[in-house]
Deep mutational scan, measured.
Amino acid sequence: ITIHVNGVTYHFDNPEEAEKFAQKMAKTYQLKMEIHNGEFHME
């Protein structure tokens, strides 16, 4: 699972971890999250 946050790329093997991380980042930084081709993009 690949997550892009403001141009920084994070890779996770565990989908649950990826989702937790994505939600935490979105909440902490008030980010808008989109999913493209199974990759999370946040800005």
Rank of each mutant, 00 (worst) to 15 (best):
H11Y: 10
H11V: 08
V8Y: 12
A18W: 05
T2I: 11
K27V: 11
E34Q: 07
E34Y: 15
T2D: 09
Q23F: 10
E39F: 05
V5L: 06
T2G: 03
K20C: 15
I3F: 06
A18D: 00
E19C: 15
H36W: 11
L31R: 01
Q30Y: 09
H11D: 03
E43V: 15
N37G: 07
V5C: 15
A22C: 15
H41D: 03
A22M: 10
V5P: 00
T28V: 11
N37F: 10
A26F: 10
N37I: 09
T9K: 13
Q23S: 08
T2Q: 06
E17I: 09
T9D: 02
E39S: 05
G7D: 05
K27G: 03
H4T: 06
M25L: 09
K24H: 14
H4V: 06
N14D: 10
T28Q: 14
F21W: 11
F12L: 01
D13Y: 11
E39Q: 09
I3T: 01
M33V: 13
P15G: 08
N14Y: 05
H4R: 08
D13A: 11
V8I: 09
V8P: 00
V5S: 02
A22S: 03
D13R: 10
H36I: 14
A26Y: 13
H11L: 07
V5T: 02
G38F: 06
E16R: 11
G38P: 02
H4I: 07
A22N: 01
E17T: 08
E17A: 10
E43A: 11
I1T: 05
A26M: 13
Q30F: 09
Q30K: 09
G38N: 05
Q30G: 13
E43W: 15
N37C: 15
N37K: 04
K27R: 08
E39W: 07
E16C: 15
Q23W: 12
N6G: 09
E17P: 02
T28A: 11
T28W: 15
L31S: 04
E17G: 03
F40M: 11
N6F: 15
N37H: 09
I35M: 06
G38Q: 03
V8S: 08
Y29Q: 08
I1H: 03
E19A: 12
K32G: 09
M42L: 12
N6H: 12
E43T: 14
F12W: 02
V8T: 09
Q30E: 11
M42G: 03
I35R: 02
T9G: 09
H11S: 07
L31P: 09
T2W: 13
F21N: 00
K27Y: 12
E43G: 09
I3V: 12
Y10N: 00
Q30C: 15
Y10R: 01
I3C: 14
Q23C: 15
I35K: 03
I1A: 04
P15F: 13
Q23N: 07
H36N: 06
I3R: 01
T9L: 10
G7Y: 11
E39L: 04
M25D: 00
H36K: 12
A18P: 00
E19I: 13
K32I: 14
E19L: 14
F40H: 04
G38C: 15
T28M: 14
E34S: 12
E16Y: 10
E34D: 04
V8W: 13
E19G: 07
F40T: 04
E39Y: 06
E17Q: 07
H4E: 03
T9Q: 12
E43M: 14
K24D: 08
Y10Q: 00
N14V: 09
A26C: 15
Y29T: 08
F12Y: 02
I35P: 02
H41W: 14
K24C: 15
K32W: 14
A26L: 11
N14L: 10
N37Y: 09
I1E: 01
F40V: 11
Q30W: 09
K24T: 09
F21V: 01
T28H: 13
L31F: 08
N6M: 15
Q30D: 08
E34N: 08
A26Q: 06
H4G: 02
Y10V: 02
H36E: 06
T28L: 15
H11R: 09
M25K: 00
A26P: 01
D13E: 09
T28F: 14
K32E: 13
D13Q: 09
Y29C: 15
A18I: 02
M42V: 04
P15C: 15
H4M: 05
E43K: 13
I1Y: 10
E16H: 10
G38D: 03
Q23R: 12
E34P: 01
H11C: 15
I3S: 00
E43S: 12
K32A: 13
F12N: 00
Y29V: 05
K32N: 12
N37P: 02
N14M: 06
V5K: 01
K27W: 13
N14K: 08
F12V: 01
E19F: 14
A22L: 05
F21T: 00
E39A: 07
M33N: 01
T9H: 09
Y10L: 04
I35W: 08
I1S: 03
P15T: 09
K27Q: 11
T2A: 07
K32H: 13
F21G: 00
M25C: 14
A26N: 04
E43D: 05
E43P: 05
I35A: 03
H4W: 12
E34V: 15
E19K: 12
T9R: 13
E16T: 08
P15H: 09
E39N: 04
Q23E: 09
A26R: 09
G7V: 15
M25G: 00
Y10E: 00
I35N: 03
K20M: 10
E34R: 11
F12I: 01
D13T: 11
K24F: 15
A26S: 07
E16L: 10
T28D: 15
E39V: 08
Y10A: 01
M33W: 12
I3D: 01
A22I: 13
Q23K: 08
Y29L: 10
A18F: 07
E17S: 10
H41N: 03
N6I: 14
F21S: 00
K32R: 05
E43H: 13
A18C: 14
K24P: 00
M33D: 02
A18K: 02
M42I: 06
A22K: 05
V8H: 09
H36T: 06
K20Q: 10
F40E: 02
F40N: 03
G38W: 06
I3E: 00
I3A: 02
A22V: 13
M33H: 01
K27F: 11
M25T: 01
F12A: 00
K32Y: 14
N6A: 12
H36Q: 06
E39H: 10
K20E: 09
E16Q: 08
H11W: 11
L31Q: 05
M42H: 03
F21H: 01
E19D: 08
H41K: 04
A18E: 00
D13K: 08
F12R: 00
E19W: 15
A26H: 05
G38I: 05
F21E: 00
A22W: 06
H4F: 08
E39K: 05
Y29P: 14
E17Y: 05
M42S: 03
K20H: 10
H41E: 03
Q30N: 10
K32P: 08
E43N: 10
E43Y: 15
E16W: 10
P15N: 07
H36D: 03
T28G: 02
Y10M: 02
F21D: 00
Y29S: 08
E34T: 14
G38S: 03
T28C: 15
I35E: 05
T9V: 11
K27E: 13
T2H: 14
K24M: 13
A18M: 04
I3H: 01
I35L: 08
N6S: 08
M25R: 01
T2M: 07
I1M: 07
K20S: 10
L31K: 03
Q30L: 05
D13N: 09
E19S: 10
E17C: 15
K20Y: 08
K24L: 13
N14S: 08
G7E: 04
L31N: 07
N14R: 08
K20A: 11
H36Y: 11
A22F: 04
H4N: 04
D13C: 15
F40Y: 12
F12D: 00
A22E: 01
H41G: 02
A22Q: 03
K32D: 12
V5I: 09
G7T: 06
M25P: 00
L31A: 04
N6Y: 14
D13L: 12
I1P: 02
F40R: 02
E39I: 10
H4L: 06
T9P: 14
N6D: 09
I35F: 11
Y29H: 13
M25Y: 02
K32C: 15
N37D: 07
N6V: 13
D13I: 12
M42Y: 07
G38E: 04
E16M: 10
N14F: 08
F21Y: 02
K24Q: 11
F21I: 01
V8K: 13
I35Q: 05
M25E: 01
V8C: 15
N6P: 02
Q30S: 04
F21P: 00
G38K: 04
N14Q: 07
H11E: 05
H4K: 06
I1R: 07
N14I: 11
P15W: 14
K24A: 09
P15Q: 07
Q30A: 07
E19Q: 12
K27N: 06
M25S: 01
